[in-house]
Design a protein around this nucleic acid. Structure first.
Lengths: 304, 304
DNA sequence: AACCACGTTTGTCCTGGACAAACCGAACTC
DNA sequence: GAGTTCGGTTTGTCCAGGACAAACGTGGTT
């Protein structure tokens, strides 16, 4: 069962790039500069990364996503990395008390059938908005933390995304296509692939009678503008995951703000833009889902 | 409006990699070997690809996806490439007569609002199965052809996928989660990102009373096996887009067949596996959507 | 018609050097 | 105290040109 088959315990540079998201050039230059990683070589002189080094690289990648810089962490031991990862979690201390980790366990154990069933059941019981606020959002946060800890990986994250997407899209579609105001256009910037933020926003807005259209992820700026103008939208909503570089988000938002006619509002949500309101004049930063509801009410008051 | 701003008419190698899907190493080695592309250089000696060369590279990429080899096409002129692309389309000659290209126009013109509305309307009128067979599938084929011709690009393809996904997922969700047989597990291999094939299959099967679970795209083989076994599925369905290398599909399918218990059937659909039935013993190749229905009937007859 | 051996094509990997953009912290201004 | 400007440092990406294994097509054989 655990035969030390090299093809199972060591990885080519291309495989490591896929697994860690670190470019081949980056892996080579780290080796040159910091002495890590230090892959062995195969008969042909090509790098072979042992599994434990790949694991360390994954931890490093997670820390980079949280804003650390390479110099201090590429040389660190597994224990030090682990300590840093812990420090990143719950900076205010302590896991939210009483959170239901049952769903998280289903994700971790790949229990796809049970997960799908449990999500549908929660939706029925809570209704769409409470389902999003009380089940999906906490679960997404829990999966994100587990990701940081290395307890979930790409396939688990994928399973989670897919099942939540299924449930949310069906529920959103069940609301009769509304003609109500405001008309909201939802999407992300071209470098952002995460779709759940959009779906959660849509799921909060649609039951309130807003009419939403999602362009999906990765829409070029010019396309956002033309869709917003030609579709007669009142609001454009952008979503940013935690891994999106804050600087790039701000730059892109300001550019889009300049592109859009004044009467179309621009809303931005997600970890990358939280607390950046002062740097984003003319843009409404929505910190969380409740903020979204508040923003909606405010818009309606203003445009009565 | 059309100021010859170099930053708008020339692209870095990284930008070309993103736009064409051709790796940086590949672009450099083609330049060395075939003399094309032949980018200019910026002040720092870095490659700058003019827009027309990027366009040619895109055409080349499309031909590669259809099985051509680089030696004959990398040196070709735009006219020759264009002729080859035409030859790839409708090898039997002639566009399907009377096809409704209205939806395709909406995709090409980025009319997201109208597209979403038209799709919903078609669904209402036709019902889920006919909608998939008569509207979605032809539209997907038309978008694929337009992609080959260069008339649609990433953003248009993305818009199309997103809107169809929305409509199909809500329609599928509207069917009460069925307990019926067979129980079908749907997914793709890790290198395959296209999700529409899965959704179309699910949309055909669910109204027949089958109970489907989609794991989404990019599921590792081992995860497919464990999900299929632990979920008590009767059938595992895999979908392959036209760009998926046939060789890799066959290899992966045989490996998965060996991994799965005998009593779980394995179905494969999509352009990459069409006409490969003889090379896939123990695997059911479904050529098109009607084949899927036939396969379902046959399964029920066998397992009565 | 299916299969295998052989030469060719083709993408990926290598080294080691270079540089610009991103980033940090300190000094400075409002 | 909050924000800005400015050097110095870090860091990712790019370059050249060589090498090789895997993928591919072809022609001969069963």
């Amino acid at each position: 069962m655990n035969a030390p088959n090299p093809s199972e315990t060591a990885f080519s540079i291309a495989a490591v790039e896929r697994d860690t998201g670190l470019a081949k050039d980056t892996l080579r230059v780290w080796e040159r500069r910091y002495g890590f990683p230090s892959p062995t070589r195969d008969a042909n002189g090509e790098r072979l990364y042992p599994a434990d080094q790949v694991e360390r690289l994954r931890m490093i990648r997670r820390l980079l996503d949280h804003g650390r810089r390479p110099a201090r962490i590429v040389g660190a031991s597994v224990e030090e990395l682990s300590a840093m990862l812990d420090a990143c979690l719950c900076p205010e201390g302590g896991t939210p008390a009483g959170r239901d980790d049952g769903l998280l366990q289903l994700v971790r154990l790949h229990r796809s059938v049970e997960l799908a069933a449990a999500l549908r059941q929660a939706l029925m019981k809570q209704g769409l908005q409470r389902f999003v606020a009380e089940t999906v959002a906490p679960l997404a946060a829990a999966v994100g933390e587990a990701w940081m800890r290395g307890e979930v990986d790409v396939p688990e994250e994928h399973l989670f995304t897919e099942q939540v997407q299924n449930v949310l899209r069906s529920a959103i579609g069940a609301h009769a296509a509304s003609e109500g105001r405001p008309r909201v256009l939802l999407t992300t910037f071209p470098e952002e692939e995460h779709v759940l933020g959009l779906l959660m926003a849509e799921a909060m807005l649609v039951p309130e009678g807003a009419s939403c259209l999602s362009l999906g992820t990765r829409t070029p700026l010019a396309d956002i503008r033309s869709a917003a103008v030609s579709g007669g939208f009142d609001i454009v909503g952008l979503s940013f995951s935690i891994a999106y570089p804050a600087r790039q988000a701000i730059e892109g938002l300001l550019e889009l703000r300049a592109l859009l006619p004044e009467e179309i509002a621009l809303w931005a949500g997600g970890a990358a833009v939280r607390d950046k309101q002062k740097r984003l004049p003319g843009i409404h930063v929505v910190g969380d889902l409740e903020d979204t509801m508040a923003a909606l009410l405010q818009w309606r008051r203003t445009h009565a």
